[in-house]
Simulated assay, not measured.
Amino acid sequence: MTTKMVFAQPQPVLDARESDEWTSGICDCCDNKPQCCFAFWCCPCFACVKTRKYGQCLCLPLLDIFGPAHPATLAMRVSMRHRYGIKGTICKDCAIATFCTACAWCQMAREMDSRAIPIALVGTRPTQ
């Protein structure tokens, strides 16, 4: 019986979509009408669902309820810009998070959908 030793595992190949802009505008809510309606009528619920999908704590957006500023929306927007390499400024993010909260969440949801990279887990079995 011979044993094969594997020295290098195959690495996953990611299809990078290089763009330094948002894939949709802040006012493109009608691109996904059901999502837009959900965000408009129940923005806290929509934000919690999308925050969880992004990989953060489900209740994080509830911090936005306690004041005129929206720290969770701002933090998510800045995090998403950094993760996807999107150009922008903290000043613009702050203004959008404060005055266009539902539209900001819709835009972030569309961005997550358009930049989603499916991950395939490959099963392994021992070679004989």
Rank of each mutant, 00 (worst) to 15 (best):
C48S: 10
G55P: 03
A97K: 04
C30A: 15
P10T: 11
C37H: 01
I117Y: 00
I117L: 02
M80Q: 03
Q107M: 04
R115I: 03
Q9V: 12
G25A: 01
F40M: 07
G25M: 09
V122D: 06
C57M: 07
V49K: 07
F38M: 08
D93N: 09
T89G: 13
R125N: 10
C27I: 15
H70K: 07
V78W: 10
G67D: 06
Q35V: 06
P68H: 14
A104I: 05
M112S: 08
H70C: 12
K87M: 11
P118Y: 06
T2G: 12
S114H: 13
I119T: 06
K33W: 06
D28K: 07
A95W: 15
G25C: 01
T3C: 13
M80E: 08
W41G: 11
F40C: 09
L74F: 15
F38A: 02
M80T: 09
R77T: 09
E18I: 12
L60I: 01
A120E: 14
C30K: 14
G85V: 06
C94V: 01
P71C: 00
M5E: 13
D28L: 05
C36T: 04
C30H: 12
T3G: 14
C100L: 11
T124H: 12
A102C: 11
L63Y: 13
T23H: 11
H70D: 07
E18S: 12
R52K: 15
Q128N: 09
T98K: 05
P10K: 00
E18A: 14
T51E: 03
Q128L: 13
L74Y: 10
C100W: 03
T127I: 15
A97C: 03
A16T: 12
R17N: 10
M108F: 02
G55R: 02
H70E: 08
D15Y: 15
I86R: 09
P44L: 00
K87Y: 13
K50P: 06
V49E: 03
A102W: 00
A8F: 13
Q11T: 13
A16D: 09
I86D: 05
R77W: 04
R17M: 11
I86W: 02
V13H: 09
C100K: 09
K53W: 08
M108V: 08
K87P: 05
C59W: 09
Q56Y: 13
P44W: 06
I65M: 07
R110V: 02
